[in-house]
Computed example of a mutant assay.
Amino acid sequence: MTSADPTPEPSSRPDPARPEPEAFPDWLHQLEKEIRVGRSVRLRIWFRRRGGRLLAGLGALVAVALVATLGTVGYGYARRPGPQAYPTISQPPGVYATSSASPPPAAGPFDGTPAAAFPAGAAGITLPPAKRTGDFTAKQVSAGLAKIRTALITARLDRTFMTAKDPERLVRQFAPDQRASIRQDFASDAFANFATRLAPGARLAPQQPRVKGRITYRAHRNAHGVRVLEVTTNFVWAYAFRTAPVAPGDGVVIVHDTLVWELPYPGDVRSRANGLWLTHMQSYGANIDCAAFDKGLLNSGEASDREQAITATATVDPDSLYDPDRALDIPDTCGLHD
């Protein structure tokens, strides 16, 4: 969905409660943007289970022992340790909604992983009810949430966008004044925090990605005194790649992102600043190809990286990586090969 044409420049109106519109031509260029795709967070996780079976028996006495050690890639064939505690995030204040669509029957590449119970595709992006919030009317809230949902679908689920060389399909959905910044993100690997681009030769399975998460919104004034509708999206995206799986979870790549969007109140900013803004980004990836992710691109991990990834993540419960409430600070396994 493209953003609307720039609205006419708002007329100058004295208002002691807030700065004049012309006082904020560049305010959003200074917003904080936390990028976590650098080499310190290019995460590649493979959890493998080596199952060895020792048969010992003489005569009528037969003892069978199963020794579970890391080895075969996957999540389901080895005995797991009991549930482990892991750090979780604090939910932002405001009106919210979580993924609530009935999941389709588990089938194919997601079997044996938590993603098998997630809704498929856009069905996992559930919008909260639009209510009057601060100075934003219910209609404005509804329109803003719809824009963000469309941007998420383009950025994370649109296969045409994932393989296109030109990112404008997504870029033009942002406020005109932020588009140059978004283009700069696509010129580096920073875009991987909020958008999915496939590595050359990578092929997704025909099944739709599985999606689970939450959307929360609230109204407030930002550090520049501008009234904004702040929307926090927190989603886990599970992608199935075409591979020859050995065990459940092979070829399933996880991306977990938390994004903070802002929509300024139209009367507080100039027309080119109206629309979607990204002000904070944080993410991690799991079971990824490190070489591809160094460029921000997505592909399933390769066997050559498995052993060192296992060592770095031995204390991480693999199922926790599918939890949208999990904290995004996790071990970096890709950095082991630098």
Rank of each mutant, 00 (worst) to 15 (best):
51 G>Y: 09
10 P>W: 06
107 A>H: 01
163 T>N: 09
316 V>N: 06
195 A>Y: 05
32 E>V: 01
171 V>W: 03
266 P>V: 12
39 R>M: 08
319 D>M: 05
226 V>G: 00
311 T>K: 14
231 V>M: 08
270 R>C: 03
254 I>Y: 02
330 I>P: 07
328 L>G: 12
148 I>G: 09
202 A>C: 13
336 L>G: 02
293 F>M: 13
249 G>Y: 00
290 C>V: 15
265 Y>F: 13
311 T>N: 13
74 G>Q: 08
55 L>F: 14
128 P>W: 02
80 R>W: 12
163 T>V: 09
290 C>A: 12
21 P>F: 00
255 V>N: 13
239 Y>A: 01
283 S>W: 06
131 K>W: 01
330 I>D: 05
83 P>H: 04
72 T>S: 08
235 F>G: 05
262 E>R: 15
212 K>D: 08
88 T>Q: 06
83 P>V: 09
160 T>M: 10
309 A>E: 15
269 V>A: 08
264 P>I: 15
326 R>L: 02
285 G>E: 07
139 K>D: 13
82 G>E: 04
129 P>F: 00
10 P>V: 00
14 P>C: 07
7 T>F: 09
128 P>H: 02
175 A>C: 01
324 P>G: 09
253 V>C: 05
233 T>E: 15
287 N>V: 04
175 A>D: 02
29 H>C: 03
216 T>A: 09
197 R>F: 04
313 T>D: 12
242 R>D: 09
113 T>R: 01
55 L>W: 14
64 V>Y: 11
142 S>W: 03
64 V>F: 12
166 D>G: 02
52 G>E: 12
84 Q>F: 01
335 G>K: 12
302 E>P: 07
313 T>S: 15
312 A>D: 08
60 A>K: 15
330 I>C: 04
101 A>N: 00
331 P>M: 03
152 L>G: 15
139 K>C: 11
21 P>D: 07
78 A>H: 11
322 Y>F: 13
37 V>G: 04
6 P>D: 08
304 S>H: 12
25 P>T: 12
28 L>Q: 03
109 P>T: 01
49 R>Q: 07
235 F>S: 05
19 P>K: 08
86 Y>G: 07
3 S>F: 10
52 G>T: 12
127 L>H: 03
335 G>T: 09
169 R>E: 01
64 V>P: 00
89 I>C: 04
262 E>S: 08
23 A>D: 04
226 V>F: 04
88 T>G: 10
304 S>P: 01
216 T>F: 02
241 F>V: 00
274 N>G: 10
181 S>T: 12
33 K>A: 10
276 L>C: 01
311 T>G: 06
116 A>F: 06
228 V>R: 03
329 D>G: 00
58 L>D: 15
52 G>A: 11
150 T>I: 05
11 S>N: 02
22 E>T: 11
117 A>T: 06
40 S>V: 03
202 A>I: 11
178 Q>P: 05
16 P>E: 05
242 R>I: 06
337 H>V: 04
255 V>H: 08
4 A>P: 14
264 P>M: 14
224 H>Y: 00
109 P>D: 00
104 P>K: 03
177 D>E: 03
